[in-house]
Simulated assay, not measured.
Amino acid sequence: MKFEAILFDCDGVLVDSEPITNGVLRDMLEERGWAMTHAACLRFFVGKAVRDERVTIEARTGLPLTEDWMQLFYERRNRELDARLEIIAGAHAAVAAAHAHTRQRIACASGSDRFKLEMQLVKVGLMDFFADRIFSGHDMPRSKPAPDVYLAAAHHLKAAPAQCLVIEDTAVGVTAGVAAGATVWAYCPLPEQGPALLQAGASRLFAHMAELPPLLAAA
């Protein structure tokens, strides 16, 4: 099957940002009284918008999730990403292959805020592939696991969702892609994460982004 459009998640798929972002979040939540390990923080928040977990955060810290605190989180997160962010191995070639496969009909569709998305894509040299085809869950009525961001990307590319391929790495994101009606392939470098991704609806798992170009060539 030749896909009309290919829609990439960003964090964990194109850039290795999740350990950095969640490290900052864990530290800031501990400062407010909610202590957890880095692994526990990653499991709870991966694929989600921090604001969407307001009720849990306020219950565990006993403090309101204020706009000032969110802005401080963004500032600390962005500073760490700017200093330490790296591209996922093989992602540049994978995006180039998707770009060629669809005759430039690709998009980046993420639950992250737009500033973070654009900053990250510029930093790792992928911005030229996506240009004006970057979609943030913060700009949608609902973020992942709702399908809104993927439906918006498909609509912009004038592609039927059923003819789109979504590349994801979390169960939350896979759920969003499936709900949009797309085919979802899951980047899964850790085998133990595979069952959850398949249960969420991924039709294929692959362990390295270098596998994507030959998979597209055979599609």
Rank of each mutant, 00 (worst) to 15 (best):
F73Q: 08
K158T: 10
E75P: 00
L81G: 04
D82Y: 13
R103M: 06
L126C: 03
V124S: 04
L126F: 05
T170W: 01
Y74Q: 07
H99E: 10
Q104N: 11
A159V: 09
Q120Y: 05
Q104C: 15
W69Y: 15
T102I: 04
A93E: 11
R133T: 07
G173T: 06
V124L: 06
P64R: 05
I87W: 05
F135Q: 08
W69V: 07
V122L: 15
R103C: 15
E118P: 02
H92N: 12
L157V: 13
D68A: 14
W69E: 07
Y150K: 01
A176E: 00
M119V: 13
S112G: 14
A159K: 13
A100E: 13
R103Y: 10
P147G: 05
K116Y: 12
Q163F: 09
A153E: 11
I167G: 01
S110M: 07
D82E: 12
I87N: 14
R114T: 10
H92L: 09
L85H: 04
L65Y: 11
L72Y: 12
A176N: 01
A152G: 03
H99V: 11
A93L: 10
A171M: 09
T102W: 03
A176P: 00
A153W: 07
P64M: 15
V174H: 00
T170F: 01
A93W: 03
Q104K: 06
A89D: 11
A131M: 12
D113G: 11
R84I: 13
R105A: 12
T102G: 12
A160T: 06
R105E: 02
A159P: 02
L117Y: 07
Q71R: 11
R142D: 08
L165N: 05
F129G: 09
A100V: 14
M140Q: 15
V149A: 03
